[in-house]
Simulated scan of single mutants.
Amino acid sequence: MEISYKDRGLNYGDGFFTTIKIESGQPQLWQYHLARLRQCQQVLCFPELDEQAITNACLEAAKGCGLGVIKVLITRGVGGRGYGLPEHPEPKIIITQSDFPAHYFKWQEQGVCLSVSDIKLGHQPLFAGLKTLNRLEQVLIKAQASQQVADDVLVLDIDDNVIECSASNLIIVKNNQLFTPSLKLCGIKGVYLSLLSDHTQIKSKSLCLHDVLEADAVFMCNSLMGLVPVKSLDKQVFNLQTALDLKSKIEATL
């Protein structure tokens, strides 16, 4: 597929995407991914999507794949003067398939070590929770994380609130209650977090680093890795067996 150098996704990050796990030839959690695409379309004032056509294309891309990843990326296409919107936009839909990150299986069983990122997220409530193409903060966060010994990083916002990890949501457990950081000002609400929220009581609230360090268990999650226990955050060590037991109980509700 060819992409024009004038495409608004390339020039302005004018678009959105979602990343889907393929298992046994089927896109997983598809209705949640479709809801995410629909929300982005509405907030960013895109034309209504042909959801059936996108669904059929993803089913075709997943066919015959035992385990893999599909990415659906949608731009506003070409047109408009500068930042101005085209009068009759023709969105570009790009669907690609790739290998599944094999290290996620190890993470699920053995947990991960986190460190706190030095790069902090800015506030933009208009796009908070959405997975738009504007991901430069995450690019820099991932670049820094790759230079560290830890498996991944915990990311704060400019007010030092805990928000997420480099490519996943965060859940903490304290006194048998589940909490996840508020995403009203920044961050991305993942599909797997939405799934968990529909089956398990998870309270969204402002969390600071102290809240995470004092938690009984900590997890990362996204639609590819599922629920992954955190076994340490910098010098703080968490009980991995406690997290694994809680992970089994949470997953049993799905």
Rank of each mutant, 00 (worst) to 15 (best):
K106C: 04
S115D: 15
V116Y: 07
E109Y: 09
L224I: 06
L207S: 04
Q52W: 02
L213K: 12
I171D: 04
I172W: 01
L209W: 11
Q201K: 12
Y104K: 09
L85I: 03
I70H: 11
A128N: 05
D160V: 03
S4H: 06
L29G: 00
K249W: 03
K6N: 11
L209D: 02
L195Q: 05
Q41K: 07
N134K: 14
Q148M: 10
S98E: 13
I158Y: 07
G9K: 07
E164Y: 02
D7I: 12
L121H: 03
K231C: 09
G129Q: 08
T180R: 01
T200R: 06
Q39D: 08
C165Q: 00
F238Y: 15
L126S: 13
K120G: 03
K6M: 14
S204W: 04
L130V: 12
S146L: 08
N11I: 13
K6Q: 14
L133Q: 07
Q39Y: 01
T55E: 15
G79M: 03
H33K: 05
W107N: 02
K247W: 05
K71Q: 06
V78R: 13
A252M: 13
A217I: 01
I95H: 12
L29D: 05
V43W: 00
I171N: 00
L185C: 10
P101A: 04
G111L: 04
L114T: 00
G122K: 05
V72H: 09
E90V: 15
E90K: 15
V69E: 07
S98D: 10
